[in-house]
């Protein structure tokens, strides 16, 4: 009862939003208690790893800022809702690789695209291609190497349209006795 409700809710929301950082800090405290030398080594490995990619991280965020302002989400949405057929699918896969943002921004955006008449395949292809981030490729290369990053990106982009069509087929398949499909 000592803490006022507002303090308590703020602590709770801090716990919920930063649980990963808090648990990593906890792990370090435990590590420093158990094996200080190795904990220090872990900390220096972390620092060195971060130092080796700091420029790339800064660049990635710089590019994301530019992309978000110059390629407006609304324009992409309008384009995707208007186009049909293969063109829409290709644009969807391409825009998935440059659209950036957390789920709570992307899902409502896709919802508006859907409302403008886009197919399930288009929505799904955007989300599938979303696993490739063109601005982040240098970061992936730094950690995983060229051959890994390029083949993973290529395979992901190539699979985006088939995944879209497959999900669409399942979404529109309804075992009804009379007709074949209904939309």
């Amino acid at each position: 009862m000592s803490a006022s409700p507002s303090v308590r809710t703020r602590m709770l929301s801090l716990l919920r939003s930063q649980w990963l950082l808090l648990s990593v800090i906890g792990l370090y405290l435990w590590a420093f208690h158990k094996a200080p030398e190795r904990a220090l080594e872990a900390l220096s490995v972390s620092g060195r790893t971060f130092g080796s990619v700091i420029l790339i991280i800064l660049s990635v965020f710089g590019l994301m800022g530019l992309l978000q302002v110059w390629i407006s989400r609304e324009k992409v949405a309008a384009l995707l809702g208007k186009e049909g057929g293969w063109k829409a699918l290709v644009i969807a896969a391409a825009s998935g690789t440059i659209l950036i943002g957390p789920a709570y921004i992307i899902f409502p955006l896709l919802q508006s695209i859907k409302a403008q008449g886009a197919r399930w395949a288009v929505i799904t292809a955007v989300l599938a291609a979303y696993a490739v981030k063109i601005p982040m490729i240098p970061l992936e290369v730094q950690f995983l190497g060229w051959s890994f990053s390029l083949s993973r990106s290529l395979l992901t982009i190539l699979s985006a349209i088939p995944i879209g069509l497959l999900v669409e087929a399942i979404m529109e398949w309804r075992p009804s006795p009379g007709g074949k499909t209904l939309r």
């Binding site: 990963l20 950082l21 648990s23 990593v24 800090i25 792990l27 370090y28 590590a31 080594e41 872990a42 900390l43 220096s44 490995v45 972390s46 620092g47 790893t49 971060f50």
Partner: peptide, 9 residues
């Protein structure tokens, strides 16, 4: 910060 901390651990 959390992720890079984890990498070291």
């Amino acid at each position: 910060a959390a992720v890079f901390g984890l990498v070291g651990l």
